[in-house]
Amino acid sequence: MRISFIGLGHLNSAIVAGLLADGYDPENLIATTHSEASAATRREEFGISVTAEENNPGTNAQAVADADIVVLGVKPFHIAETAQALADALRPDTVVVSVAAGTTLATLTSVLPEGQPVVRTMPNVALTVGKGVVGLARGATVTDAQVTQVEQLFAASGTVFQLSENQLNALGAMAGSGPGYVFRFVNALAAAGVELGLEEQVAQELARLTVVGAGAMLDHHDADPSALEDSIATEGGTTQAALNSMDANGFNDLIIKALQANVTRSEELGA
């Protein structure tokens, strides 16, 4: 397959890196960026063809002309106009894939030629380390074979979950933004360690290693987080005392409210 990437931000770059690491032929990958400086950096990094809008305003249309799959990796508020600008250059069987939060299939299909295959995805930033999570919702005209091709696009850098579109915002609130919550927790854990008398550098390293270790314990198909929690939190022990405090202060409610705020914002972006 020939795959074109419109934009090479974190997510599209991670997908490209995963494909190349998996042995994909760089001759079949092409990308565009806004600036020539960025294009030059990515050409050197990936060894693929990268062109810049700065030098050639028509470069996006040229990049998609022979593509089997086009991955739109621009900001959510630019997705519709970018898709519309590419519409006339697309082959009827080219699959257009969005990695933008909030942008609906209806929005994309409204600016693309009638019948154009469209797939909406919701990846997270862990694609950059080959541990990503990707939600995928298919448009009405996408074939099973095309969905499989899109799944393979992400398989080298993450795990794909095929969902209905109305479930994507929930996945985005959990997994799409989830790394950000974990990073916030690590900072809070480190700050608490400093409050308890540790040096800041030591507290930060302890917090980081603690979460890395816990993640490794969870990184098994049969891992049960509740069972793992029970194995650590013995009755009347120190861990249980801390967990009881979390419960008393509404920890679970705080998480639910945070995810609800996330979904609300996704809905606003898609309005």
Rank of each mutant, 00 (worst) to 15 (best):
8 L>I: 13
262 N>E: 13
265 R>D: 06
208 R>N: 04
221 H>P: 10
224 D>I: 07
234 T>L: 13
190 A>G: 12
200 E>A: 15
113 P>S: 12
5 F>W: 05
102 G>K: 11
243 L>D: 04
121 T>W: 02
233 A>W: 05
234 T>Y: 10
178 G>C: 07
31 A>P: 05
55 N>R: 12
8 L>E: 07
78 H>K: 07
172 G>H: 05
102 G>D: 09
92 P>S: 10
61 A>F: 00
167 Q>P: 07
209 L>G: 00
50 V>S: 08
205 E>Y: 03
213 G>Y: 02
131 K>Y: 03
210 T>L: 07
108 L>F: 03
46 F>R: 12
178 G>E: 06
247 D>W: 09
229 E>H: 15
120 R>N: 03
65 A>S: 13
137 A>R: 02
90 L>N: 08
83 A>I: 10
170 A>K: 12
238 T>Q: 05
228 L>R: 04
267 E>I: 08
49 S>F: 03
133 V>P: 00
45 E>S: 10
114 E>K: 14
236 G>Y: 04
50 V>A: 11
225 P>K: 11
145 A>N: 09
72 L>T: 13
44 E>C: 04
33 T>P: 01
151 E>D: 06
207 A>G: 01
194 V>P: 03
213 G>F: 03
149 Q>D: 15
202 V>L: 14
116 Q>C: 10
164 S>D: 15
216 A>D: 07
181 Y>T: 08
85 A>V: 06
108 L>N: 10
39 A>E: 04
200 E>R: 15
204 Q>S: 04
216 A>N: 06
244 N>Y: 03
146 Q>V: 02
138 R>L: 12
135 G>S: 02
